[in-house]
Amino acid sequence: MPDLPTRQSALAQTPKLDELIQERRDLWIQRLYAPDGAPRLPLPVDPNRAGYRDGLHALWLAPGEWLLVSEGAMAPADIGDGALSDLSHARTVFRIPVAAAREILARGCPLDLRPEVFSPGHCAQSVMASVAILVHFLEDGAHMDIYVARSYGQFMHAWLKDAALSL
């Protein structure tokens, strides 16, 4: 007689992809153009770095350009002289645990993500599966956030899950 209670599911080894790749919803996302900086914001001056203060992330994009991300809206007065474009509805953001994120990104993105090069508080723009992405290694050291244009969100979700199958 088969030993039913101990028989393992045939799907037991399949990664639980919906837990692994989570979507971050309801974010406040703005592109800030401020060639002279904005002293009241935690803007990193060095390329490929992210600043954080009081719930606000500032991700370096280009000289004088940052992506501001927070879980709640900020008052416009806090932003100084910069010009803001609201991208809250224009991005899809995925959150992936860091070890899995390294493996998944390695399957389609040319970024050097080795721990000695890409560490917590770093961010980088690149390309994956022909789609422009922004990778943010969160300050907690446990997760990476991947930003894509919203119109590529579904495609990127399918692509990430497919890449995660071989983890």
């Binding site: 040319p110 050097d112 690149s126």
Partner: peptide, 11 residues
């Protein structure tokens, strides 16, 4: 000069 060494596919 801004982002560091990057693959040609980004350009």
């Amino acid at each position: 000069p801004h982002c560091g060494p990057r693959a040609q596919t980004e350009f």
